[in-house]
Structures are given as structure tokens and as C-alpha cells.
Amino acid sequence: MSYVDLNEITVSYDGKHNILEGLNLKIEKGELVSLLGPSGCGKTTTLRVVAGYIQPRSGDLMVNDQNYTKIPVHKRNFGIVFQSYALFPHLTVGENVAFGLKMKKEDKKVIEKKVDNMLETCGLSEYKNRYPKQLSGGQRQRVALARALVIEPNLLLLDEPLSNLDAKLRIQMRVEIKRLQKKLGITTIFVTHDQEECFSISDRVAVMNNGIIEQYDTPENIYAKPKTEFVARFIGFENFIDVERKEDHLFGSQGVSFRVDDVPEYDVKKMTIRPDDIEIVKTPVPENGISGQVAVRTFLGKSYQYEVQSDFGSLIVNGSDSDVYETGDQIHMVLPSHKIVLV
């Protein structure tokens, strides 16, 4: 059995509309799993169910073979870091970190030692006697993390912990979080809406939408092989072409057939490809070739992006820096068969 097991969790605030709909999620010990999705998809609600702030209407939460569904928050021993950090403003950094240990009524000397160790691990030793107000955003974030980790939690829950930091610090902190998490071997759930952040940090990712998990897989698989149109769109596939499958062949409109390397077992309605993966070629190509007219050209810095009107609708294509086309130009493209994903 998995270390964490969310079993058919249903949550509704008003008794009519479900925010989570029979959600299932299994996490292995030591894994870092991200819940990724747009705001309102239910990822924070899921985290709050695990934390114990929300009682699910039905379903069970098992952690380490123990049923946690009815256990109150303060008896769960899960470490939590909020987006706002939620540091206790009236306590110093040291007192913030010591809080959880004091609640467990640990020995004073033990607390002192654990706090000092944790502050050192997080690079906060010199700030021990400062108040949260006197710290920078990055330092506050570290205190919040230290406070959650020092209680040696059974589970670490992070709710968009990096979204209040600037871009540079964000990258630095996510490496830091990953390092600490692996070092301490703490099973972690990480909620985010930022896919880059999520891919860089996670062992597995659950992409959520409308209260259900659309896909639960490794970051590599989600990036390369989205299983639903929602997931594909969310992680940057912008071109969608309606297709119909007849035996092993795929047909677009007007009966044009496409070759796709990876054809899944399940029913497919669309094929999709990233703007980066469409190649612009000089002469028309018979297999997987599409032609069209440049409607809009946008300068991206490294190269140009074109919006091309084709027989299959409008396609977004990132050009190479060698050839540049003008608005109105007729161009030929090829969709490489190994880059096409069917959803």
C-alpha cells in the first residue's frame, strides 16, 4: 500500500456543488508530488483536506496505513507552508521554529538543539532573534520551511510557497526545497500553478481541473505525452487539429491522413503539437505536410512566431532564426510524426 492514499475524496461547501469529485491519489514514501492546475481547480482544497482543515463529505485519507480522515489538525503532525508564510508576527524566528516542539512538550534542551540545527540547515542562524517583520521575503520563506520541518513531520504540505518571491529567488528556493526534501526524505505535496516550477521539483505531477485529476505521471511524461486536451493546453500545446481514427490511420479534415508514431489505446479526438515542434520547410512535403499563409508575425526575441492560416485552422509556429517570413507569405510546414500527441 502507498504511504499516502486519498481514496474517493469528495468535498462540497454547500452540499450541492462538489469541489472535489471522488478524488484518488497515491503517493509513495519520500516522493515529492505536485498538484498542478489553474486557480479554482481544487488543488488547494485537496491540500487542505490532507492537512485536516476541510472535512471531506466522503472518502478516506490514509497515511502510513493509518486512517487520518477524522484526526484533528493538531494531532496529525504534518508540516505546512502557506503562500503568505503565516509566520507568527509576535514571535522571533527562533520562537517561531520552536513553537511546534514546545507544543509537543519536548525537553527544553532538546528543543534548543533541534531549533539551532534546523536554523543552520536553512541558513538562518544569524536571524534567530529577529522578528518576521525584519526579514526579507526569501528569509521568511526559509523560516516557514524550517518551522514546518523541525517537527519531523510525517508529511510536508506546501501551498504555493514560492509565488510571493521574485523570479531569481524562486529558482534558488525551489532547488533548496528539493535538496532539503531529499536529504530528510520527507514525503511532500506541493501545490502550484507554475508548470516550470512544478516540473523542476517534482517526482510526479497530478494535473487537476474542475475537482478531478486529469493526469498523474512523471514530469517527463506529462510534458511529452499529455493524455487529455486540458493537460496538453495547460502545458503549452497550442495547435489542435481534429482527427478521426480509422483502424491504424488518422484522418484530418478533407480526408488527409497523418502518420503518428505513438497511437494510444484509448479513443482520440484531436492531435496536437507544440509551436516549437512544427518545422518550416522550403518545399511541400508529402507526409504530414501542411501549407498556409502567415497572418500575424510576432517577434519573440530569439526568433519570430507566426500565426499561420491553413486548411486545418490557424496554427502557431515558432520559426528558426535563419529564415524570416513576412505577413502574407505562403509557407510550408511539416509535423514530425514523433512529436504529434493524440488526445
Binding site: 492537512a51 485536516g52 482543515y53 484533528p72 489538525v73 493538531h74 494531532k75 496529525r76 503532525n77 504534518f78 508540516g79 505546512i80 502557506f82 503565516a86 507568527f88 513553537f99 511546534g100 507544543m103 509537543k104 518551522r147 514546518a148 517537527i151 504540505l157
Partner: peptide
Amino acid sequence: EVAWSLGCN
């Protein structure tokens, strides 16, 4: 809420 998670009733 954080205080609850740290074992405070």
C-alpha cells in the same frame, strides 16, 4: 491554521 498544524489545539 499553521499553529494547529504544529500541534496546537
